[in-house]
Amino acid sequence: MNLTLKVWRQKDAKSPGKFETYEARNISTHASFLEMLDVVNEDLISKGIEPIHFESDCREGICGTCSMVIDGLPHGGQPGTTVCQLHMRYFQEGQVVTIEPWRAKPFPVVRDLIVDRSSFDRIIQAGGYISVRTGGTPDANALPVPKQNADLAMDAAQCIGCGACVAACRNASGMLFMSAKMGHLSYLPQGQAERSRRALAMVRQHDSEGFGNCTNQYECEAACPKEISVAYIARMNRDYALASAKEMAGVE
């Protein structure tokens, strides 16, 4: 199949960007969207043009590296799909496809479609963990976890940190990402000790990174390649308010 691509090109964070138009020729419908871009890039390099810069790594939907907005939807908008898993059979012959980077202040563009998502790392660093040293831990079966809770923790823990939730959100809010980590840890008994501290620290970090606020439109859930539920955001809102109340009252 043949497609016309309108791709955002931007030399670096400081330079202004603009759309360039490229033709994708003879693309197999079995190819993934990124493989289609590989083919276009091979062609560009042979013409002496620098390839379209985009990030990808595992190409099986788990590392969370790939990130681009295709025709207005992060990862192309197929349910539960990262762009590396998006296959060309979803496109039509002759289609014009617009490709843009994630747009959010806390995700500055590095080059073309590559954005800097280190703000996500800093949110985790603020408290998205259970503080245990290596060694000296009790036997793994010492503390039973109800299967239902383990499953709810796992549902949230599946987050791949790709940032599609932020990209899809008109407020560029990082709340689905943040709430997934809080949800994961708060459903486990091991995560209780730091539950309040974690909620306060992560939300404050989120805010200081410049992410927007959630207006409950649930675009994030629809865009999430792991289909993480906005119910975790509700849980986070509750945890955060409780933690704040405890902090105000001086409850330790």
Partner: peptide, 25 residues
């Protein structure tokens, strides 16, 4: 909050599409 959110998304997408958000929202 709206000001904050507008600052968080300084650049709009060339193509805007929504999947879940209601008109009301």
């Amino acid at each position: 909050l709206r000001q904050r959110s507008a600052a968080a998304r300084p650049e709009a997408y060339a193509v805007e599409r929504k999947k879940a958000a209601s008109k009301a929202s």
